[in-house]
Design a protein around this nucleic acid. Structure first.
Length: 431
RNA sequence: GCUGAGGUAGCCUAGCCCGGCAAGGCGCCAGCCUUGAAAGCUGGUGGCGUUCGCGCCACGGGAGUUCAAAUCUCCCCCUCAGCGCCA
């Protein structure tokens, strides 16, 4: 949710920013919010005045009765107020809700450095690391590599749970854990605190952290409960301090979330459909930061550098893109994607999303910044970035480091977490 | 799941039976005092609106009774304790 105060005081600035999205709906929405806000304020004055009158009369009734000189006139007037007030309040509440519903539909203000573009094809490449290997034709897809190793069950998973699910078995399970542990160690060395969050959230905090349209498309709901399976640990981490005042001297808070992620929407598949690239559940180590508003641009670069370091140490080529206006979504003010090189596909595919959400999430969650009991509260900024998601992180390792004999070389940095093993190979005895 | 006790400002607490402007303490901020600090003293310390005078709201949430609700009635949520169940 954007700052209503800013919208009132500097509507032109807000309008110019929204106009950069080249979607006339948002500029129209802004005008509607401003108009609705005026109506609400007028209505609030009406009901405030009625309440003031009621309080005044009630006080006088109490006093006059105590003195033994009740006034029939005053008591008669007092009786007329509840009905009038009920009507005035109903109108005021309706106008307020209408205004807020419109306000919540306005996307975050974008950073000036966000490039204009219609969709992900117009994201701007900022840098490339490593040398993308050129011939993919002879390689297997990561799904084929897994099946060749006897380390995945896709058919049986479909029967048990449906498309988009998988069983992993054998050493690749250890590789999955190794990848998470490697990323987590890298982050804790850089000042992050590991957090294992709840894997389900109530609806109210969920509405604070995510775009409502996405919410309906993506979230699994637990039947009969006000609970939703998390789509990423970003969400419970953002909700960690909802309704609280953060001590400005303690910030920034650097958190490393570790959790499974559940997503309904898996969309279309391209080449090499079988596998774990787009699935309903995966593990993820996530960076999440609460910080002072002036620090968020610097911290966004820090999070990007951390995520790049994960893939550099693994030895996976990648590029960084600055996500354009059409692909940015409503919550982030600026977003980098890191796209790893998938040699079989001869394509860069998204493995990390790194966003500065400025004050948009924190305001919706009622998180403030300052000193308890001192005036002058600000709204902190929140940022999030993948460190590694082990569906896609695994997939790219399997594809990148596959050997002609079907085995997979384990990246050096993961070997300490794999009991020193240097490769994944097919087990001799078949289970 | 059952029984009981609770939910009041950043924190802790009083008020609730018996309806009438939410009292006090801690913490924090500012001023006074001081070489400096502490202590002490004074004031401030939530949200919304505002014509900047002030007004309204806020006692877990909602509804009801009433001229008037922290207080009475009903529904719901949450926390804690004990019991039950349990990897």
């Amino acid at each position: 949710m954007i700052d209503l105060d800013l919208l009132r005081k500097e509507p032109t600035k807000v309008e110019e920013n929204l106009a950069r999205r080249k979607n006339p709906v948002y500029v129209r929405l802004l005008a509607e919010v401003r108009q609705q806000d005026e109506l609400w304020r007028a209505s609030l004055r009406t009901s405030d005045e009625l309440r003031r009158r009621r309080n005044d009369l009630s006080r006088r009734i109490g006093e006059s009765r105590a003195e033994g000189t009740p006034s029939a006139e005053i008591e008669a007037e007092a009786k007329t107020i509840p009905d009038a007030l009920r009507a005035a309040e109903a109108q005021e509440t309706e106008l307020l809700h209408a205004r807020d519903a419109l306000l919540k539909r306005i996307p975050n203000l974008m950073d000036d450095s966000v490039p204009f573009g219609a969709d992900d094809s117009e994201n701007v490449v900022l840098s490339t690391w490593g040398r993308p290997n050129a011939d993919g034709a002879s390689l297997k897809s990561h799904g084929e590599v897994l099946e060749g190793l006897g380390m995945a069950e896709f058919e049986r998973a479909r029967r048990a749970s449906g498309a988009g699910f998988y069983y992993l078995r054998g050493d690749v399970v250890l590789l999955d854990l190794a990848l998470q542990r490697f990323a987590l160690d890298l982050l804790t060395q850089r000042g992050f605190t590991p957090v294992a969050p709840p894997y389900m959230l109530r609806r109210a905090p969920y509405e604070g952290v995510t775009d409502l349209a996405d919410f309906e498309n993506v979230m699994y709901k637990v039947e009969g409960e006000d609970l939703y399976l998390i789509a990423t640990s970003e969400h419970p981490l953002a909700a960690l301090y909802q309704g609280e005042i953060l001590d400005e001297d303690q910030l920034p808070f650097r958190l490393a979330g570790v959790s499974p992620c559940f997503r309904k929407e898996i969309g279309g598949h391209g080449v090499d459909q079988k596998g774990i690239f787009r699935v309903h559940q995966f593990q993820k180590v996530e960076q999440f930061v609460f910080c002072r508003p002036e620090d968020s641009p610097t911290i966004l670069e820090e999070l990007r550098a951390n995520a790049e370091e994960v893939f550099r140490q693994l030895g996976v080529p990648y590029r960084v893109v600055n996500v354009c206006t059409g692909d940015l979504g409503t919550v982030a003010a600026k977003k980098y994607d890191i796209e790893a090189w998938f040699p079989r596909q001869q394509a860069f595919r998204e493995v990390v999303s790194c966003s500065n959400c400025t004050d948009y999430q924190a305001r919706r969650l009622g998180i403030r910044l300052g000193k308890a009991g001192r005036p002058g509260k600000l709204v902190p900024h929140t940022l999030n970035s993948t460190a590694v998601a082990t569906s896609r992180g695994l997939a790219v390792i399997l594809e990148q480091f596959q050997q002609p004999d079907g085995s997979v070389t384990i990246p050096d940095v993961l070997r300490p977490y794999m009991g020193g093993r240097s490769s994944l190979a097919r087990a001799v005895a078949k289970a």
